[in-house]
Write a protein that binds this DNA or RNA. Structure first.
Lengths: 167, 167
DNA sequence: AGTAAATAGTTGGATATAAAACTAATCGCC
DNA sequence: GGCGATTAGTTTTATATCCAACTATTTACT
């Protein structure tokens, strides 16, 4: 997402030309009602809102789920983590390198399986995660407010069904 | 997203070790109920499902909204398009170069404003768009089935609220 | 008119991600 | 016990995306 400011305030009125639209009154056609498109736009909007909160703590939203999953599942392997996180394991390599370099996670080798790492949080990682959880709670409160308490539960239930069945 | 197969059917039972989880029974902690996380996972799942359909037609899902918006708004500028599409205008440059190279769109210069392009679809672009619309309709039917007819409307309404207010 | 500010589009640099090919280790099975 | 298949992680390559800086053009204001 990004551009919230669609409601222009500049003095120029909407162009009357049939084609050359100034910036407003775009026709979305069927996109306007399609779930896929609105899902993409909503995800981008929520992601960006959380980005702003997370960067005050010095991290990106992508790192947050990673830290949370490691924190809740100490000893998890990179492959299991990538599955849980829904990203390819190759995407994780640079992320984990960075988290390790910054002293937030530990990668210990398994004696049983010399291929796999066991991931865990360092105290610094736990502390950053705790900060991020606070950000995330604020973010969730905001989303819940937007969604409305009455519909919140069913909204999340539908998202879970899409996750489970749309693959 | 990707990994739908969390409910393993392989013969191996969940490891009893407190740490070394095989691949199942990951603890998501609060992520499991957070809107932001489920939104991201659902978007990725839907995106990937549509990707499969779209690539049979020879395009990526990212191109679809672009073509639709140009088709519905002939003469639109790149900046207006990027706003409508929720992406930075610089992301659009390579996409439009590619679409133009493949003969799907036209970029004509405006006499009134020599900076701006006016974008429109070529006949080939219209034909590809029509094919993509058929894919998208099939995709939407599947999503509607997952969501359920009763909740579909309110689900999209909530997504729109998030788009409008979460920025 | 003339200049400062805004705007359209591109470029360059950075990050995130996926897919495929690769290396090393382990497992399954005979 | 050994060999083919599988698995864990990395590397490489390719896209998509953002942001900031840039060029060219237009607009606004004096």
């Amino acid at each position: 997402m990004a551009r919230r400011r669609t409601n222009r305030t500049s003095g120029r009125a909407a162009s009357p030309k049939p084609n050359g639209r100034g910036a407003e009154a775009v026709d979305y056609g069927p996109l306007a009602e399609w779930v896929g498109f609105n899902l993409r736009m909503a995800q981008a909007a929520a992601f960006q809102a959380f980005s702003r909160l997370a960067q005050e703590v010095g991290t990106r939203p992508g790192r947050f789920a990673t830290l949370m999953l490691i924190g809740r599942n100490p000893g998890i392997s990179q492959t299991a983590l990538s599955r849980a996180n829904g990203r390819d394991k190759s995407s994780l390599t640079p992320v984990l390198n960075d988290l390790a370099r910054r002293g937030l996670i530990r990668r210990t080798r398994t004696r049983a399986d010399q291929r796999a790492y066991r991931l865990s949080l360092t105290p610094a990682g736990k502390s950053l995660l705790a900060q991020l959880v606070r950000c995330a709670r604020a973010h969730e409160r905001n989303l819940d407010r937007i969604i409305g308490a009455r519909e919140q539960k069913s909204f999340v239930r539908i998202l879970k069904r899409i996750i489970a069945e749309a693959g």
